[in-house]
Simulated scan of single mutants.
Amino acid sequence: MKKILFITGVLLAQSLFSQETDILNVVTTPDGFYSKPGRVRKEDRKIDGSPYVNGDKFEKVMIKDYSKNVQDLRYNAYRDEMEFEIGNELYNANKTEGLKVNFPSLKKTYESINYSYDSKTNSGYLVLLVDSPKFSLYKREKMELMAGTRSNNGFTKDANDYYERDKDLYLVAKNKKFSKFPKNVSEASEFFSVDKKELETFVKSNKINFNKEPDMIKLVEFINK
């Protein structure tokens, strides 16, 4: 596998971000993850709440085969983008299929992946919970933009639009085919092609709750053994 190196350099007029006067120290990559990114468009209205499920702070990241000298990132769950900042400007990193971005402080790894679910094809980031050649478990985090309300009298103020977190979606992947995590033992037995009685015994002895993330992880790890 070709080693991916980061180059820290001074970029001028025909540089990464086409800025005519600024001199920037920017980390770039041959595969394009940080190069030629799209500048994030600023909202032209007041929106309450935050599109960031992990907070607004940019965090240190680790990416396999990359130098440690990389831009700090944060995940925008509304736009489904990894953002980084240079000066006062905000940029989206380019999506690179299969790239895994580990946030050590958050104990979370996001994978950039093309996947199909509910008859729709998506290209975005999923939280990788179980990584296995058999069954992998992912979580989709999503923020929705909800409409505010307009005041119908002169005594109350209009309410701004606001971000609201959608329910996390858990997906099981096998051979790049994604399916919603099963709801119960019967569905799990059929989906994973395992003996129902054996699965029932495991679920009962480990008090598995099909709606709790730690139990989902435990179940998929058991299936993969």
Results as ranks from 00 to 15, higher is better:
residue 47 I to M: 02
residue 101 V to N: 01
residue 167 K to R: 13
residue 86 I to Q: 10
residue 57 K to R: 15
residue 41 R to H: 07
residue 3 K to Q: 12
residue 206 N to H: 14
residue 118 D to T: 04
residue 94 N to V: 06
residue 29 T to M: 01
residue 28 T to P: 01
residue 40 V to K: 11
residue 134 K to R: 11
residue 24 L to D: 10
residue 28 T to D: 10
residue 9 G to W: 04
residue 125 Y to K: 05
residue 133 P to L: 08
residue 185 V to P: 03
residue 198 E to D: 15
residue 118 D to S: 14
residue 50 S to H: 04
residue 28 T to C: 06
residue 168 D to P: 13
residue 154 G to Q: 10
residue 200 E to V: 02
residue 71 Q to K: 08
residue 149 T to C: 03
residue 153 N to K: 06
residue 139 K to Q: 13
residue 73 L to D: 01
residue 219 L to K: 02
residue 5 L to S: 11
residue 62 M to K: 15
residue 188 A to R: 03
residue 157 K to D: 12
residue 173 A to K: 07
residue 65 D to I: 05
residue 177 K to D: 12
residue 224 N to V: 03
residue 108 K to R: 11
residue 195 D to T: 06
residue 220 V to Y: 00
residue 164 E to M: 15
residue 55 G to E: 06
residue 69 N to H: 13
residue 170 Y to W: 01
residue 44 D to F: 11
residue 139 K to S: 09
residue 186 S to R: 09
residue 223 I to S: 00
residue 123 S to R: 07
residue 105 S to D: 13
residue 26 V to M: 08
residue 59 E to G: 00
residue 188 A to H: 00
residue 213 E to P: 02
residue 123 S to Y: 10
residue 139 K to P: 01
residue 92 N to I: 01
residue 176 K to V: 04
residue 128 L to K: 11
residue 50 S to M: 03
residue 72 D to Q: 12
residue 153 N to Q: 07
residue 65 D to F: 10
residue 72 D to N: 14
residue 88 N to R: 08
residue 36 K to S: 10
residue 135 F to W: 15
residue 75 Y to W: 07
residue 4 I to Y: 08
residue 125 Y to T: 01
residue 106 L to K: 12
residue 43 E to A: 14
residue 57 K to S: 08
residue 5 L to K: 14
residue 74 R to F: 03
residue 111 E to N: 04
residue 210 F to H: 03
residue 150 R to E: 13
residue 222 F to E: 09
residue 71 Q to V: 02
residue 37 P to S: 03
residue 158 D to K: 07
residue 166 D to V: 12
residue 181 F to L: 04
residue 155 F to A: 09
residue 168 D to F: 05
residue 184 N to M: 02
residue 35 S to M: 09
residue 20 E to Y: 10
residue 190 E to V: 12
residue 135 F to M: 03
residue 185 V to H: 02
residue 86 I to V: 14
residue 20 E to D: 11
residue 213 E to N: 06
residue 210 F to W: 07
residue 4 I to Q: 06
residue 218 K to M: 11
residue 91 Y to K: 04
residue 66 Y to K: 10
residue 174 K to S: 14
residue 47 I to G: 00
residue 63 I to G: 05
